[in-house]
Design a binder for these strands. Structure first.
Length: 269
DNA sequence: AAGATCAGCAACCGCCTGACC
DNA sequence: TGGTCAGGCGGTTGCTGATCT
């Protein structure tokens, strides 16, 4: 059993469960104004009855302005598979290489996928040619959490190009040309940390792993055809196709116009 | 039309690690 | 040097809504 975080202790009255739009707004506006200095103090300063961890999680996984939402494109999917092969369950590291995706989002995606795959494997090994009936099910092409109550508040609105990037906010990766871009906070000042490189010794192995990935032509319809996902896909495709981009000394930086720059030779810790 | 089933997702939990005292 | 604390991460759970029967 780990120590209970003081901020999460039962003595303090902390709310749990889904975030309301009001809470989202409070948190987002507080971070926009003051940045992130100390998560544990943010709830009090922002007037929230949440623990700091919860605030951090909400920000990282939902409110961050550089997050894009919606279905994963085929190339993103391929990239995740390649990265997972190379990095294992290091979701944060994988997320750092995927523009606009949170580790939680990737983790959820992978787990859902993996579950399905395992089920299929199990079914095929035990029942021979019998295909699992569940896999044919498809949901409507909705936008991720579009109908979720917690998604009502969009911290990116109203669009304001002068809106300062939160001081403590560091863009996880390059902002892609998602449909959110029009509302995207100015990201120019945010130092991109995405694309942290692997240890040199690992590059060969990882490159091999990446190259071993063969995108399945039969996999589910590529969201690349989606207007929204439309894409980073050129970039993502390059990452999948070219392991040197994926695992070499590159990192990404988002530009105001949504284009992506490569910064060669920069090594991150 | 209604209940069952399933996928997707948000958020919590517990643990680890590094910074600070 | 050891203890405490906050931040961060991965695993897991539970809710919601879409789809199927």
């Amino acid at each position: 059993m780990g120590r209970a975080h003081p901020c999460c202790s039962e003595e303090k009255k902390v709310r749990k469960g889904l975030w309301s739009p009001e809470e989202d707004e409070r948190l987002a506006s507080h971070i926009a104004r003051f940045g992130v200095s100390c998560w544990s103090s943010i709830p009090e300063l922002a007037g929230l009855q949440r623990c700091g961890k919860s605030c951090r999680l909400r920000w990282m996984n939902y409110l961050r302005p550089d997050l894009k939402r919606g279905r994963f494109s085929q190339h993103e999917e391929d990239l995740i598979i390649a990265l997972h092969e190379a990095l294992g369950n290091s979701w944060s590291q994988i997320a750092a290489r995927l523009p606009g995706r949170s580790d939680n989002e990737i983790k959820n995606f992978w787990n859902a996928r993996l579950r399905k795959k395992l089920r299929q494997k199990e079914a095929s090994s035990t029942a021979g040619s019998k295909e699992p009936a569940a896999s044919h099910r498809r949901r409507g092409g909705g936008e991720g959490a579009g109908t979720h109550p917690a998604a009502v508040f969009n911290p990116l609105l109203p669009a304001n190009a002068d809106r300062p990037c939160p001081a403590g906010y560091v863009a996880g990766a390059a902002a892609g040309r998602s449909s959110y871009d029009n509302d995207m906070w100015a990201t120019g000042s945010a130092a991109a940390t995405g694309g942290a490189v692997l240890a040199a010794a690992d590059v060969g192995r990882n490159a091999a792993a990446a190259e071993s990935v063969t995108p399945s032509p039969t996999s589910t319809a590529s969201a690349c055809t989606d207007a929204q996902a439309g894409c980073d896909d050129e970039f993502l495709k390059a990452m999948v196709d070219d392991a040197s981009i994926l695992f070499g000394d590159f990192y990404l930086n988002s530009n105001h116009d949504g284009s992506i720059s490569f910064w060669e030779g920069h090594v991150f810790s």
